[in-house]
């Protein structure tokens, strides 16, 4: 870990300005991803801006329906919020399927969205990795890629986004609200928040320099059965091989998004409409153009079968 200076931000805009103007500056929230990566010198900030304590840890109703989740709300608190449990069950379920109790007590809404891939080659600084070191190549292609992506990937990077929470937010059509150094704010639809790797896998989101997440807005509750099904090798404390977030109405209609398969929460709106037609139709649509590798091709079968499990659960 490189030496860094540390300061507590005074306000959200102050933080954004500092982040834009101080060389090597980064925000730190829960720290559970950033410090992990700093210890390995995968992240090398020289200045940390602590954004805890800016009062962004509240969950508030939005006029006309919906909820606004502060960027610093801890994953535990978000999962345990009575309104979320009642109206956005898929979000609670996704959150509690992620990481461990200890980590969720620290992890924040913004930090969770911005956590980086768990690609094992990204984590090993001796290995070529375009995401960690642009232009160095991708060791995962042709290597051990069982965990990695099957769609939305590129010949430069096949990493997945590891968040569970973001998959539920994607199915809920959340938007990410930010502030920029000049004080302006904007709302980025979650669909556009994470970007695909293309030839620049080190660029992962739509955020601009210094831009800070202040909250995530959930639209009015989407009625129906809320399900989050996470598939993994061990029963807990493991990243998803495949996960399925779904909200499905009595009529069999609804929305579905997948985790563990792509560089971002994977949803294809056209696939939602096929839900009444069964898992095969949905999976075929979701994975049109998929580019699996030898050791992760099973994810296509697994995704279809997991969607089938979710549809069966919704019916029951």
């Amino acid at each position: 870990m490189r030496p860094f200076t540390y300061e507590r931000a005074k306000s959200a805009q102050d933080a954004a300005v500092k982040a834009a103007t101080t060389p090597g500056a980064r925000f730190i929230a829960g720290g559970t991803n950033l410090l992990d990566l700093m210890k390995l010198e995968i992240e090398t900030p020289t200045h940390l801006i602590d954004v805890n304590g800016l009062g962004m840890d509240r969950i508030e109703p939005i006029d006309g329906g919906g909820l606004r989740i502060g960027a610093l709300v801890r994953n535990t608190d978000l999962a345990a919020d009575a309104r979320v449990r009642k109206d956005y069950g898929v979000l609670t379920r996704a959150l509690v399927a992620g990481a461990s109790g200890q980590l969720r007590n620290k992890a924040t809404t913004a930090g969770n969205l911005l956590q980086r891939t768990r690609c094992p080659y990204f984590y090993d600084v001796n290995m070529p990795c375009n995401k960690r070191k642009p232009g160095s190549g991708c060791a995962a292609i042709g290597g051990f890629s069982r965990q990695l992506g099957v769609i939305g990937t590129s010949d430069a990077c096949i990493a997945t986004h590891p968040s569970d929470m973001a998959v539920a937010m994607r199915v809920l059509d959340a938007s990410v609200e930010t502030i920029r150094p000049d004080g302006t704010t904007r709302a980025i639809p979650i669909a556009d928040f994470h970007t695909l790797p293309g030839q620049t896998p080190h660029v992962e989101t739509a955020l601009e320099k210094g831009e800070m997440i202040i909250s995530v807005a959930l639209p009015k509750p989407r009625g129906g059965t809320h399900i989050y099904r996470k598939v993994r090798d061990r029963a807990s404390y493991a990243f998803a091989l495949v996960s399925v977030a779904a909200v499905i109405g009595k009529d069999g209609k609804g929305a579905v998004a997948l985790g563990g398969v792509a560089p971002k929460p994977w949803r294809v709106e056209g696939a939602d409409a096929l839900l009444p037609n069964g898992s095969k139709a949905v999976a075929d649509r979701l994975f049109a153009g998929a580019a699996p590798r030898e050791d992760n091709a099973f994810k296509l079968t697994l995704a279809q079968r997991t969607i089938a499990a979710v549809l069966a659960e919704a019916k029951a």
């Binding site: 559970t32 992990d36 940390l48 200890q102 980590l103 620290k106």
Partner: peptide
């Protein structure tokens, strides 16, 4: 690296991994 829980302590009433916090 937050992968084992051996460092768990209780901070302000909540358990956390003390290895992943400054």
């Amino acid at each position: 690296h937050g992968q084992c829980g051996a460092c768990t302590v209780i901070v302000n009433g909540r358990r956390i991994n003390s290895c992943l916090t400054l």
